[in-house]
């Protein structure tokens, strides 16, 4: 059953002399929810940028679904089934929530070189988009301009947009960051439902969420993966406690 969907091999990213990701190797299996944790500045976002294609890598390889995508541009990775959310909310503020998601549906459904017909009225786009909004619980807010949504709602919208590309793998960069208790409960609930249907890589600082959701956890410290294991064993891993969880307790 354990079939590898995303295989990161010896991936490296340098800014000058600083190695932000340093020889990272990581295998994400099909169907699992794989959490990546690590202190601030560990290189988690950078790793997501590299996998999603926003940043190039200095060396190493990324295999996705059996193909070497190391040098693919971002949009081709998306077409192959890689979707991501951003730690710093990235939406189209002038578009309604529905339109934000409908655009993602449009991206995977047929050509966008259509110059006629009002896209805002296309049911083929709006219906799947509405579904995604309902999944994250934003259905009632579909017509609100995304820029006017609350911060928590924007985080949920990010998730809906990513879902709308029908990904094989979801890369979520701190979907709970900055959300209040209720919103964060809702997102955790959503993720729990998605779990099993879609493979998910989850970056999160909220340890409760990580340990309830994750099948496996990798710990990234100073750009290096120091451990990958089940939540229970990560919790009791001495090295991890020293490098990461310990810190947290001190603070």
């Amino acid at each position: 059953m354990a079939e590898t969907l995303l295989d990161i091999r010896h991936l490296r990213k340098n800014y000058g002399a600083l190695a932000v990701t340093d020889d990272v190797s990581l295998a994400v299996e099909r169907g699992e929810l794989h959490a990546i944790i690590g202190p601030n500045g560990a290189g988690k976002t950078t790793l997501i940028h590299q996998v999603s294609g926003m940043l190039g890598s200095n060396s190493g390889q990324i295999l996705f679904n059996g193909e070497d995508i190391t040098h693919w541009p971002m949009h081709e990775r998306v077409r192959q089934g890689l979707a991501r959310s951003f730690q710093i909310t990235s939406i189209l503020p002038g578009f309604s929530a529905l339109e934000n998601v409908a655009l993602a549906v449009q991206a995977r459904s047929g050509s966008s070189f259509r110059f006629f017909g009002n896209a805002a009225h296309e049911r083929d786009l709006n219906e799947p988009a509405m579904e995604c909004l309902n999944i994250v619980g934003l259905g009632p807010r579909a017509q609100v301009p995304a820029g006017l949504l609350s911060h928590g709602e924007k985080r949920q919208l990010e998730l809906a947009i990513a879902l709308a590309t029908k990904p094989k793998l979801l890369l979520l960069d701190e979907p709970l960051a900055g959300t209040g208790h209720d919103d964060s409960q809702r997102v955790v609930e959503t993720l729990r439902r998605l779990k099993g249907q879609t493979t998910i890589v989850l970056i999160e600082h909220d340890m409760d969420a990580v340990f309830t959701l994750a099948d496996r956890v990798s710990v990234l410290v100073y750009g290096r993966v120091i451990a990958t294991d089940t939540p229970e064993r990560i919790r009791s891993n001495a090295e991890v406690r020293a490098a990461y969880l310990g810190e947290e307790e001190v603070v």
């Binding site: 926003m54 541009p73 949009h75 998306v78 077409r79 979707a83 991501r84 990235s90 503020p93 002038g94």
Partner: peptide, 12 residues
């Protein structure tokens, strides 16, 4: 509005 977002959903 946001070119990065458009790329991230698969547009060029």
């Amino acid at each position: 509005e946001n070119a990065t977002r458009m790329e991230a959903i698969g547009f060029q």
